[in-house]
């Protein structure tokens, strides 16, 4: 009976998350808007994550280029390195790496923050004081994550391309103009737009999972830790699942 029990838990969890999401869509966009809190969360979630995302993206761009270079030289297409790296970064590596880093930082922080508020019964207190805690705490964070991650990823892509440019220039000389001309010549809207759209879903997944895990944190000292931990794990897994769905849908729509 152990396996069915875990399945039951999983199904319950999924159902709860779906209900939570539905709740968000029901309440999140109703007046009054918590604009100040939203901006504050945007600042915390977006602006403060920039350094981390920028660093990882830069390194990924650089390393990817350096790793690809020997193979491309072997096939005699080293001149296609910018094209290949550009496509890889814009379509897949940039968004996913940045989203995973973002999930590690934001899902855990939202989970821990909301979890500790839940454990210390601040949420209940907020409800008593007349503020809707869901709107104030959850909706702002989810929206902030949804809006900020795409912007972060656009920047991350740019920084990763910069890293790639440096990577290309370690093994040879390519002017910045040629590099970006090659990259943008090979890029189509069908490369950029689906990749950009899916980042909204990544951001939303990170925000909603973090909030859900924190909001539903179990009482007790381990509750907060569990909430933070499971938020990161679930958000990361969801990012990959959304990525898979995104590529399937873009293929289905013929944008590939």
């Amino acid at each position: 009976m152990d396996l069915p029990r875990s399945i039951r838990f999983f199904l319950e969890d999924t159902g709860d998350l779906a209900r939570f999401t539905g709740h968000y869509f029901g309440l999140g966009f109703s007046r009054p808007f918590e604009t100040g809190e939203l901006l504050k969360q945007c600042y915390n979630i977006g602006y403060k994550s920039f350094g981390l995302v920028a660093l990882t993206s830069f390194i990924i761009g650089l390393v990817l280029t350096m790793q690809l270079h020997p193979t491309l030289v072997e096939y005699g297409v080293a001149s296609q390195l910018p094209v290949m790296v550009g496509l890889a970064i814009i379509r897949e590596i940039g968004p996913v790496i940045a989203a995973l880093i973002f999930a590690g930082k934001i899902a855990s922080s939202i989970g821990a923050e909301l979890g500790s508020m839940k454990v210390t019964e601040q949420i209940d207190a907020m409800e008593v004081s007349g503020t809707n805690p869901f709107k104030y705490l959850v909706a702002t964070r989810v929206l902030a994550a949804t809006l900020m991650l795409p912007i972060l990823i656009v920047m991350a892509d740019a920084i990763a391309l910069l890293g790639a440019y440096i990577g290309v220039n370690i093994q040879g000389t390519t002017s910045l103009t040629l590099f970006f001309s090659q990259v943008f010549h090979s890029l189509e809207f069908s490369d950029v737009v689906p990749a950009f759209i899916k980042t909204f879903f990544f951001g939303f997944a990170v925000g909603i999972v973090g909030s859900y895990k924190g909001y539903k944190a179990a009482k007790g000292t381990t509750g907060v830790g569990n909430a933070a931990n499971s938020a990161v794990v679930l958000a990361s897994v969801l990012i990959f699942i959304i990525d898979l769905l995104a590529v399937q849908i873009t293929n289905l729509l013929g944008f590939n």
Partner: peptide
């Protein structure tokens, strides 16, 4: 800055 980057990229692609 993020939006500017996005718009620039789209412009270059276009």
């Amino acid at each position: 800055l993020g939006l500017a980057l996005l718009v620039t990229a789209l412009f270059f692609i276009s």
